[in-house]
């Protein structure tokens, strides 16, 4: 057989006879399945197990349901605009319904959530904004965990001045009141959505997230399997990429959820103060209401309740999912 004649890289290691070499059947069993397919299956298995653990927790499922509901709203908006709603009337920014005047008009068959002081459909605004809230949250979260995981792992692994520098930086960032800083930044520059995501991502990435991930990485660094990897001949990078970071990922994922909450909340506050350069958002809807003098007017509840409730619900939803994930990744928290 051709395969038998291949160069054997373990030339000195031919344990003789006594059933220690592989028999043909076993060898074929190995070849039958390529490694990547096995790995894919294992990954699927792990995910499935984690999903089962996740679903044991009611609050996680509630959070997930809320997130899916809003994701549905975000996806439905372009469809409605294309097929059902007349853009002249329903456009979230430049639409106007002359027939519904005087504005703000209360909920009706045409405008389920009424219109805003400028005669625009509130439901359309709410749905249109959802997508940006998601994108903002996700981008900020990705930036946070990328920074937090790499800095945390490097600081824990190498220690020394890298550690000192980034931990002092983290102390500094943590003591800065993020919202105040964002308001100042918003006053100095025109903050748009990508810039806001970047700033939030950087602030939380270099701040608390790094500290938490680093402390976790410290506990992984001293495990015997890291010593074993070193004795096996693994480089620093091998150890960081194959042992430390994979063991940090669950925690990383958890902190993504919490960052999403922070980002949506920050957007709401900045928009409320009119400091964000954005076409439409939940915070901006409240800002419009406020600047037209309807903020504390309970007669026009439809102006304030939909965006206010949405901010609260979506923030809470990501937080709940985070809590439930916490129980999946920290088995000690699981009650059973």
């Amino acid at each position: 057989m051709a395969t038998e004649e291949r160069h054997n890289p373990f030339a000195t290691a031919q344990p003789a006879g006594d059933g220690t070499t592989l028999d043909q059947q076993e060898r074929e069993r190995l070849r039958a399945q390529p490694l990547w397919r096995v790995r894919l299956k294992l990954l699927a298995g792990t995910l499935w197990n984690n999903w089962k653990l996740f679903t044991e927790n009611k609050i996680g499922l509630i959070g997930l349901a809320i997130i899916l509901f809003y994701a549905g709203l975000a996806l439905a908006h372009p469809l409605l605009m294309g097929r059902v709603w007349d853009p002249l009337i329903y456009d979230p920014v430049i639409g106007f319904d002359p027939l519904a005047a005087p504005h703000p008009a209360p909920p009706s068959a045409q405008h389920w959530l009424g219109t805003d002081p400028l005669g625009r459909d509130v439901l359309s605004q709410l749905m249109f904004s959802t997508a940006s809230e998601f994108i903002l949250g996700m981008v900020a979260a990705l930036i946070t965990v990328t920074i937090g995981t790499s800095i945390g792992a490097l600081a824990a692994y190498f220690g020394g001045w890298i550690d000192t520098f980034f931990m002092r930086l983290a102390d500094l960032v943590i003591t800065l009141p993020a919202i105040v800083l964002l308001i100042v930044l918003g006053g100095l520059f025109t903050l748009d959505l990508p810039l806001l995501a970047l700033v939030i991502g950087i602030l939380s990435g270099f701040g608390a997230t790094t500290v938490i991930i680093k402390s976790q990485a410290l506990t992984i660094k001293v495990r015997t399997y890291v010593e074993a990897a070193w004795v096996a001949g693994g480089s620093h990078w091998h150890i960081i990429l194959r042992h430390i970071i994979p063991n940090l990922l669950p925690l990383t994922f958890l902190y993504m959820m919490f960052t999403v909450t922070d980002a949506i909340f920050a957007e709401a506050i900045l928009s409320y103060f009119g400091l964000l350069n954005i076409r439409m958002s939940w915070g901006l809807m409240i800002h419009t209401t406020q600047s037209a003098g309807y903020l504390l007017n309970f007669q026009t509840w439809w102006l304030i309740v939909p965006p206010g409730l949405s901010i609260t619900l979506l923030c809470a939803a990501f937080y709940l999912v985070g809590r439930a994930l916490d129980e999946v990744v920290n088995p000690r928290l699981r009650k059973r």
């Binding site: 054997n8 890289p9 373990f10 290691a13 344990p15 220690t20 070499t21 592989l22 076993e26 060898r27 190995l30 070849r31 490694l35 074993a228 990897a229 096996a232 001949g233 693994g234 480089s235 091998h238």
Partner: peptide, 21 residues
Amino acid sequence: AEPLQVQNIGNVLDQQERVAE
């Protein structure tokens, strides 16, 4: 397989057989 992987000994199939051995 870690020592084989980090020291670049053999290809994936070799490693699989060696580990099985």
